[in-house]
Design a protein around this nucleic acid. Structure first.
Lengths: 361, 361
DNA sequence: CTGAAAGCGCTAACAC
DNA sequence: GTGTTAGCGCTTTCAG
């Protein structure tokens, strides 16, 4: 591999001139530049980035810690992050952490090892020692640490869950089941709180029996629904804290011979592409997934390059996206006599009805 | 940030000894090692990876080029790759290329720039100049270049599509629609060829009118199905070249009031997690997605470290996974009179029936 | 076993 | 504008 000295020799100039031609061409005379560029071409020269980075103490790498890349929401976040990084001349070091702290710490430490300039963490865990005052550049997006010290990009999960629950209440539901996300996640906690707040506001007594644990997996939704519909006094609506669980629940409910939304309404959270296409199409909360990634990258780069960030805590907007899986509580008896619900999807439209309940703040 | 000299001073040894203690401890006396380790601790020393890599001309980074990370199949591949990379002490530089060649080239060139040791390409495009004999370490997985010069990990897409088509033929179908993937993809071409081969073998004349273009998106399946079911002599079965399109097709078919599989069987390819959970559960071809990523990383590392690879072209096994979306062609008239199909899913089982049609070769 | 010393390829003062 | 030169932090001969 040719190096800068080789090019300098070929061009009949010094290595400094070659370096300058590449980094700050304005400081070099046109004629010299041409000579250098010709030599670069001739030698097939490519700057050794390891050397450049080593010397200039800047890697242009960003570590991104994602709990589970196979999750379609996170896949969209990463896609947005990658686009923004590329646009700004940065690269993404991806780590699928499975939510394991030791792996998160290990990758975050690449910053200490001068292998990356900053970290994006998509989970509510601080991978840096909390006893030290200053940390390397880090941005916390999606699931954010409560009262954390880092920049954050998040959704108002409380407001979103409250809006969704209110929507169900407005449809006449009073017995609304909930399938939660992982217990320890602040995101889950906020959504639960929003759900409770809406019930409370409507004067509905909370029944802990219809609140199930889940983990955002299809299976958890399936199993949560199994429990709920087996109850003698089963809920007339079911709020799943993400779309995967809602889809799992749909399957279980249909297997039992009940109809959605006639017998039971089901709603989700995230608006994954499939929410459109499942049967019936899912009423859910749309999140700007790509914008999480994009904003996180932009804020992190500002941090790294010591440019100001307009706000330390960005809240992205959500949209209550109304489709066919939630409907007004049926007036009739809610017994389980079989009826023909096969035409549920006849009215399905490809264009979702959306409404934005509140602006971002 | 402390450096090796600082540690050497603290330990009262030379920098060489510190370096050796870290890299090849066997060459250092125990007592000296202890001194050094204590000094490392005391100084909070972390080797500057930029310097290490610069000096030793090895980055432990692998570039992975993925056409679309939001695709759940690729997300699983990456997940497998990440695990394998981590286990081997390598890191993954992720690039979502959107299938754009200039971006693929740009990232692949990070190898020339000593920013990565090798490349994994998940698309049938050679990002390196083809006129040069030797290329940097690269492995081509999932969608592989025909007669390419690189190591490959692939599925026998021809055999898989043939097996699936034969399955439909065995169920009594003779008019089998096809929704293809992107025209230019070899993967699509192989699957089409497998489909044609099965029809030919069964003595069924191919009707080009029931072969639709698609692009692996939900929407393409939806639209392809719309075209096919509008035909006066519509197919009794529909083979979609991936699961997303099959799910899109399911939606359109159900909207039209037809039942799956009673009126029309629908099958997919990939076995994404949702294939289990859609309605009806999808008969499909299971691919070992994580194994693609894992194998690609392992072979690439062998290439980089100049260890032998047992085979240059690895073929991973597929499984025909039978669920409820495909059934024997109904004997009755295939008119479109409405009937109750709402109980389709009653018989759905969570445990798929799988069969392996042939061993990997 | 350990130390001295020569760079890896590049950038950035500092001279000219 | 351009050249000279001193390192960045580390590994790795080569001596001892």
């Amino acid at each position: 591999m040719s190096n800068i000295r080789e090019v300098a020799r070929l061009a009949g100039v010094s290595v400094a001139t070659v370096s300058r031609t590449l980094k700050s061409p304005d400081c070099v005379r046109q004629a010299t530049r041409d000579k250098v560029n010709a030599a670069v071409e001739q030698a097939g020269y490519r700057p050794n980035l390891m050397a450049v980075q080593f010397r200039s103490r800047r890697t242009a790498n960003l570590v991104i810690l994602v709990p589970k890349i196979a999750n379609s929401f996170f896949a969209r976040v990463i896609s947005g992050a990658q686009q923004a990084a590329q646009a700004a001349g940065y690269r993404l070091l991806l780590c699928d952490t499975q939510g394991r702290e030791e792996i998160e710490r290990e990758f975050a430490e690449l910053v200490y090892a001068h292998q990356a300039d900053g970290v994006i963490q998509l989970r509510a865990f601080d991978p840096f020692p909390t006893d030290r005052e200053d940390t390397p550049p880090i941005v916390n997006a999606c699931e954010v640490i409560k009262g954390g010290r880092h920049l954050t990009i998040s959704l108002d999960n409380h407001a979103a869950a409250k809006a969704m629950t209110e929507h169900l209440i407005n449809l006449g539901h009073r017995r609304i089941g909930l399938i939660k996300g992982p217990q320890t996640s602040p995101l889950t906690q906020d959504r639960v709180a929003g759900y409770l707040a809406a019930l409370d506001q409507a004067g509905i007594t909370v029944d802990p029996a219809i609140i199930c644990h889940g983990d955002f997996s299809l299976r958890a939704g399936y199993e949560g629904a199994a429990t709920l519909i087996a109850m003698p006094d089963r809920p007339t609506a079911l709020f799943c804290e993400n779309d995967e669980m809602a889809i799992g629940a749909l399957k279980r409910i249909k297997e039992s011979g009940l109809c959605v939304p006639e017998d039971i309404s089901v709603v989700g959270f995230d608006d994954i592409p499939l929410a459109h296409y499942c049967d019936p199409p899912l009423t859910t909360i749309a999140q700007p997934a790509e914008a999480f990634g994009q904003t996180a990258v932009e804020m992190l780069i500002n941090l790294i390059e010591k440019k100001p960030n307009p706000q330390r805590h960005v809240i992205l907007p959500f949209e209550l996206t109304l489709r066919q899986s939630a409907a007004a509580r049926s007036a009739g008896p809610k017994g389980s006599e079989k009826k023909d619900c096969s035409m549920n999807t006849m009215s399905a439209s490809c264009a979702p009805t959306t409404q934005r309940p509140k602006p971002a703040h």
